[in-house]
């Protein structure tokens, strides 16, 4: 399992691995928003949590179609399915590697980009907390979507359509935590909902992903 994680991280960092793709997209979106909205600091401050969350979510979505498709194309998935490693742990490790290469950089970059959007002071902590709690769910749900569409040529569109509705709860509660944090309101309820969603998908979805992957490998 460690070997698979290490290999995925090395592959992501080598040329053409796609590390930084999501991060660059996140950067571009948040840098461009102030230009398109205009220099109204009050307006920017009020939309900042939502924009940052949306940018992070779309950045996650961007790299999903490579998550399993590359391994499927070169036959690695077939070989992994016949290896002693259970497919459930293969998809979990894949999701973890995706989070480490896409989600974690987004979490770390978000406070820096928050400055560009005039995010109010108390919001920074809760933005990072909400992204740190929410992005693992995005990776796990995305792995499920990638497993569903793995055999399809140009499955990216279908993947986005399948995954976006599943991302909705995470986006709603995650952005709500960040917004309430920025405005200094109580945020225990959305925070618990967000943590609950993440815990549930991490616990349950790997089994569903492995099951659909088995069907798709036939």
């Amino acid at each position: 399992m460690i070997a698979l994680l290490k290999r995925d991280l090395v592959l992501a960092l080598r040329a053409g691995g796609g590390f930084g793709l999501g991060l660059a997209f996140f950067l571009i979106v948040t840098v461009l928003v102030p230009f398109s909205v205009g220099p109204q600091s009050a307006l920017l401050a009020s939309i900042a949590p939502g924009v940052l969350w949306l940018g992070a979510l779309l950045a996650c979505l961007l790299s999903l179609d490579r998550l399993l498709a590359l391994d499927w194309e070169d036959g690695t998935l077939d070989l992994l399915a016949t290896a002693p490693l259970p497919l459930e742990s293969v998809v979990t490790i894949k999701a973890l590697a995706h989070w480490l290469t896409t989600g974690l950089p987004l979490v770390l970059a978000a406070p820096v980009l928050g400055v560009l959007l005039n995010l109010p002071g108390p919001g920074f902590l809760w933005l990072v907390v909400s992204l740190a709690l929410g992005t693992p769910a995005l990776s796990v749900i995305g792995t499920f979507g990638a497993a569903l569409t793995v055999g399809l040529k140009r499955g990216g569109l279908l993947l986005s359509l399948l995954v976006l509705p599943l991302y909705m709860p995470t986006l709603i509660y995650g952005a709500e935590v960040a917004r309430r944090g920025a405005e200094g309101m109580t945020l225990a309820t959305p925070l618990m909902m967000l943590a609950g969603i993440s815990a549930a998908v991490i616990a349950l979805l790997p089994f569903a992903s492995a099951a659909v992957l088995r069907v798709n490998l036939r």
Binding site: V10, L11, R14, E73, D74, G75, D78, L79, L80
Partner: peptide
């Protein structure tokens, strides 16, 4: 008990032979 080798080799082009 089976080692399967299909039409494709499952190699990663950016990894070395040893890796």
């Amino acid at each position: 008990r089976i080692a399967y080798a299909g039409h494709s080799d499952g190699l990663k082009p950016t990894l070395s032979v040893t890796e």
